[in-house]
Design a binder for these strands. Sequence first.
RNA 1: GGCCCGUUCGUCUAGCGGUUGAGGACACCGCCCUCUCAAGGCGGAGGUCACGGGUUCGAAUCCCGUACGGGCUACCA
Length: 504
Amino acid sequence: MTPTDVLPAKSDGARPVRVRFAPSPTGSLHLGGARTAIYNWAFARACSGSFILRIDDTDPERSTPENIAQIISALQWLGIDWDEGPVAGGDYGPYFQTERAATYVQALETLRANGWAYRCFCTPAELALMREAARAKGGSSGYDGSCRALSEEQSQARADAGEPFVWRLKIPADHGPIAFDDAVCGHTEFPEDSVDDFVLVRSDGSPTYNFASIVDDATMAITHVIRGNDHVSNTPKQILVLEGLGAQIPTFAHLSMINGPDGKKLSKRHGSTGVEEYADKGYLPEALMNYLALLGWSLDGETTLIDADTLKTRFSLEHVAKRPANFDFAKLTWMNGEYLRAMETDQFAQLMVERLAREGLCPPDDFARRPDWYQALAPMVSERAKLLTDIAPITRFLFVDVVKPDETARAKVLDKDPELVQRALRATLEALEAVEIWDVAHIEAAMADLPDVVDAKPRLAYQPLRVAIAGSTVSLPLNESMELLGREKTLARIRTLLQTMPEA
RNA sequence: GGCCCGUUCGUCUAGCGGUUGAGGACACCGCCCUCUCAAGGCGGAGGUCACGGGUUCGAAUCCCGUACGGGCUACCA
């Protein structure tokens, strides 16, 4: 097999769309990476193309199996599926760069055969000096190409003698500016002298990112390279490699960066930057995907709630914004609430039990044991929760044995008008003790005239009861709460609170 | 230093030369609903479209410059 066999033939015919997400596993999947993955995935789906996951692990120092596993599970959590890559397999593998050494060797062979590569023996010290001098002169600060002067014999002899060297790209002297039409940024041009003869293969034989990545894109027949804005300056280098290889040049689409709320680069300082942290914090994958999709892309400027199915059919590169976006936690959180409320009752109830069980408030199989109870509770909770982590605080009073009035309840209710509290609680107790059938309808009927009985405004008449059963001035609706709590517990809590009240 | 890019309400965005007195969403404020909190409904405030020059009958929309912000400038990715 000759090197060119692995390269797609140059052709003007429309190729089937193939895009890839190629994270380097030097850390977990962060928000920016997740958005890039979502755009690639949505684009592939909308074009009926293929979405490929490739692990760009050419940095041996920082790449770890743990990071790879984490990235994969984060993508799965988000609901992103890939047609080729780790787990999925595919015809263009392997999908780990560390397993693709042969491909890079072949690509280098092709480059050499085409006169596009040469050995460089310069030492790091020499290189540093060179950069310094170039920068002082005020021009571009790249490699000056001194090893180009070496003849093939000299070069080979020094290599044979064991002198360390790297392979550099030999950019044709009269090349001219390198231009490409970015699907997001539009026409982009780089002067030829702004790109230097960069390193292709390190002295240890491993390929650099700018070489391996684009060779893989070519051999994997990638048609659209959708990636972060930080790669714009790498693009001319990669195009040059493609030219040297005689390979087809894909369409590039560079996405703007995501900044923190303060407009500065997103970092831990702003809160969570890793996708899995959002799962822990109680965000739904659908909400995170929706939010991230809208951070730099819009469907029509009006629609804000966009589900995965819509993304998969309507996503397009044309509406991707050029400018960087600031991450807004408040909007993400609002959106999460929207998705929570849109959930089917049973589905939400299951999530609820999962969360409660995690807190030790109920057994893991509690939903199966009393589905009706949870189905009644679920809508009241989903209406109030913004995050999954809100569930436990909201419902805790239904699961614990005793509730203790919190500080606000003390100050604003119990201590404020003890006399009214006792009056209201006694009246409530009396009314509830008479309830024959313990359900919302009967409880409600019994409680309806409480304000008249205690001669207080409704809000004041009912607050003591709320404190008694929930220990708080804020709770789920009372009648429903009492039904769910059960007759005995409800009455017991009212009596308990009454006993703690000072004698009037 | 050099090379590239960006700049519309606090934030995310719509806008591709006239139909825009710049539209939507989050957040904020008010009212309604109401046993609290939410949810929901209604309404409000918030933008001299970074700035300065052009081009044009007409510019947020096209061109040039300035300022500010960002990226790259490694044998990192």
